[in-house]
Design a protein around this nucleic acid. Structure first.
Lengths: 146, 146
DNA sequence: GTAAGTGCAAAACATTTGCATAAGC
DNA sequence: GCTTATGCAAATGTTTTGCACTTAC
């Protein structure tokens, strides 16, 4: 998705929610969409500090990630290692993750048959499904060799 | 599973690993197998303090849960709310969880077709699968009604 | 006797919050 | 100008760790 499009959507989102368009929010949005890797709040904070100078405060990074997450601009993924990772999610279809327990590498996969079965399970339990977390843990090809 | 059997297995495990059988470890093991609910380290610490008096220190509770987890006596489940929950896992076949985002209730389910597809995905990516986390989030029947 | 385990309090860690200041709208 | 957002530092909550003391083996 084009940066301009992302920006436009973000501005619309803020307007719709009665929130303000601040330089910090724009800066964070742009930086988040510049990377295609998974990152933590702390990592993002580090990037901003290194690239700008003064940058954005840690608290605002956290607050804005929450904002972007609830707005669907980023997806939070819990790796189970204590810190939350994020990835931008506009223009990316839903996927789940495979995490290598040795090197930490994360691969993405899509498996609609699993999604379908999840719906089935939820229905069976009378739950209205709103989300799911599927994380496969294992050893990647490289680490098996090494 | 019988308490005596659990205890025997635990003793064997400790011996095999060259670890020591201490009153604290035994006390924690017994308390963990007394409940059929999910509990956090903090909750367990509270139970022990309330039931005994002096009880076991917080540090030992954490260290022993780690020990029980790596030995397969308990399973750790990451609810995503910041604190880790545990459940004893001997004599319980593998299952995943459905979490109600409103009331926090946790239901268990088994779905072997999903397990099979996970293996398939891992194979496709060259990963040797060692574990997985599947957590469905939604609204339970009661909360949908209320 | 010796290495491992415990308890304590302090540290570490990511994240959140209170409050005064700054700045969108 | 009014209300929201920011920055800072302090607080939070869970988990981990250093170290002296204790204990299982």
């Amino acid at each position: 998705m084009q940066p301009a499009t992302v920006r436009r959507r973000f501005e619309r989102h803020l307007r719709d929610e009665g929130l303000r368009l601040t330089p910090q929010r724009v800066r964070i949005l742009e930086r988040v969409f510049l990377t295609h890797e998974h990152f933590s709040a702390e990592t993002l904070f580090g990037w901003l500090r290194a690239e700008d100078g003064s940058a954005v405060s840690r608290a605002t990074v956290y607050r804005t990630l929450e904002l972007l997450s609830s707005g669907g601009f980023v997806t939070a993924l819990d790796t189970g290692s204590g810190e939350m990772l994020y990835e931008h999610s506009l223009g990316h279809s839903h996927h789940d993750h495979l995490v290598c327990k040795h090197c930490g590498r994360i691969e993405e996969f899509r498996e609609s048959r699993i999604e379908r079965l999840q719906e089935e399970v939820a229905l069976r339990h009378g739950f209205e499904l709103t989300g799911h977390l599927l994380r496969l843990t294992g050893v990647c090809r490289e680490c098996q060799a090494g």
